[in-house]
């Protein structure tokens, strides 16, 4: 029996679990801190808006933010067991959640000073997963890309006669 294979498996699982959990906890803390700091920056999925009274558009620019989050051995193992039974792939949910939130934070960082971000969209793609011999041996990572149109306004000064 292949004992060395089993030992490698157990080590990778433990490593994946410990390192993955630590990284995830740290990332969530950082996400929550930055989200709170940027809370006052509104984003809407609505694509059109009236210019508020007394203001005029100074600049409108597409802003993007993207984040790539990798899976770990432990999460991938849980997901591969899921393929036997179906159901929610719970171990991947946090990856996507982190990727989306991180992408939005980065997009907001590009829109400092903008009054609003219009028409925000999120795209997701998986990268780095090469299908060799039908086995999913490559690294599994997910990319989330958030983009929208950031609008900066200027106050219109009352015209002096």
């Amino acid at each position: 029996m292949d004992i060395s294979g089993l030992v490698i498996f157990v080590v990778l699982m433990a490593l994946g679990y410990i390192a993955g959990t630590m990284a995830e906890r740290k990332h969530y803390k950082s996400i929550e801190r930055r989200e709170a700091a940027m809370l006052r920056q509104p984003i809407v999925t609505y694509e059109d808006m009236e210019t508020p009274e007394g203001k005029r558009v100074r600049k409108a620019k597409m802003v993007t933010g993207s984040a790539v989050i990798s899976t770990d051995y432990f999460k991938r193992f849980l997901a591969s067991l899921r393929f036997f039974f179906g159901g929610r792939v719970k171990s991947y949910e946090s990856l996507l959640d982190r990727a989306r939130r991180e992408a939005i934070i980065r997009m907001k960082q590009e829109a400092v000073g903008a009054k609003i971000i219009l028409g925000m969209r999120i795209e997701t793609s998986n990268i780095g997963s090469s299908n060799r011999k039908g086995k999913n041996k490559g690294l599994g990572a997910v990319e989330a890309l958030a983009y929208g149109t950031a609008v900066w306004f200027d106050e219109i000064r009352p015209q002096t006669p």
Binding site: Y17, T21, F74, K75, F77, L78, L81, R82, F84, F85, R88, K90, S91, E93, S94, L96, D97
Partner: peptide, 20 residues
Amino acid sequence: NVNVSRTHPLKELLLLCGGV
């Protein structure tokens, strides 16, 4: 956070391993 399940990963591991 409604987007992430609250199940502990180790519990999930036990359940799935047991099932398989």
